[in-house]
Design a protein around this nucleic acid. Sequence first.
DNA 1: ACCTGAACACCGTTCAAGT
DNA 2: ACCTGAACACCGTTCAAGT
Lengths: 203, 203
Amino acid sequence: MPAPRKFTHEQLQAAALELVDEEGLAGLTMRALATRLGTGPMTIYNYVDGRDGLERLVTGAVMARAHRPVPRADWRVRVESIAEDMWRAVRAHPNAIPLILTRRSLDESALASTEALLQALADGGRSGADLLAAFRVVSGFIAGFVQAELPAPSGGNGRSAPVRMAALPPERFPRLAEIARATGDPEAEFRAGLKILLAGLDA
Amino acid sequence: MPAPRKFTHEQLQAAALELVDEEGLAGLTMRALATRLGTGPMTIYNYVDGRDGLERLVTGAVMARAHRPVPRADWRVRVESIAEDMWRAVRAHPNAIPLILTRRSLDESALASTEALLQALADGGRSGADLLAAFRVVSGFIAGFVQAELPAPSGGNGRSAPVRMAALPPERFPRLAEIARATGDPEAEFRAGLKILLAGLDA
DNA sequence: ACCTGAACACCGTTCAAGT
DNA sequence: ACCTGAACACCGTTCAAGT
């Protein structure tokens, strides 16, 4: 993409993210972004590579906020800290979650967190295929937690996942009913899951 | 939805899944499904609740194939078996992956696998919040592996994730470069990850 | 070089009419 | 009751023209 001058990339990112936060994913539209910026739809094409680039604007904006300074500490503590930072950054923009899960973000801003996570795991004594396996476990766990907080379908009358789970026939799905009752504090659940992971990584 | 008779639900599911397999997600359209079935677009609305229902047709079709008989064995072996079945079912239809990651499938056909997984974990001695945490870890791991096999953007000229990772500046992302080199056999990576998980669940 | 409106080829869905 | 075409209000994007 060229480097035009009517808007900056940051302005585009911010406007696109606001659009998604306020109006939901369905509101993310070339035309909507254009009118929010006070121009015609075609102007956006000077800054972004089609619909795909429009969505990358959003994932880039979200993930850029995920990378925070890593504490100087034991590798386990660092893994926990990075994982929580990534999760929190995504949770702050629930409407963007389908995009995050779906578009592999490979901007360098998003990759900084990943590299830091890998470095922490490497400091735990892993390399090569072992490092890859450990990474897959941790990043998969984060993705799974993100997925668990997907906003209800669209419109707003959809119940959240735990509520719908609790409405299932309990004689056919007794264990699902059990965990539906146990669902409550996402922060606590995230930390409990991480604890299991770290125990496995330590073994 | 009513129970009309020109087509069965299974016919709809099969046609929708074929559409996605052959033409990609962009090919999943009310109009395309209609012409594939030899009717007008509006006929679909007698079987499916709008665009949302159209997509649920696909996720339902994929997840229904995930539930296979669970071996009578140690809970660890059962967890492995169920997790692999779910993963394999999804991998068989890569174009549907964004839908799977994004639409929470709550048909009873999809929930059968989940209940079986929960039962296996419960037999490992967990209940309540512990059961929930263990479940989140395992299902998150599966989701993460599914995500790692997202088909390249769209069009076909996009390189796969490992290839693009290998193209990053290695002096800035040395650990990413390392795992990019280690990436190879997804089946082996899946089993290695599960091993870490089970070690954590055993601790 | 950058910007932009008009126009085109799609979509999902409402409406009203058929049987 | 089920089916269905025409029509409407959107999209993304091509094209050609402006500065």
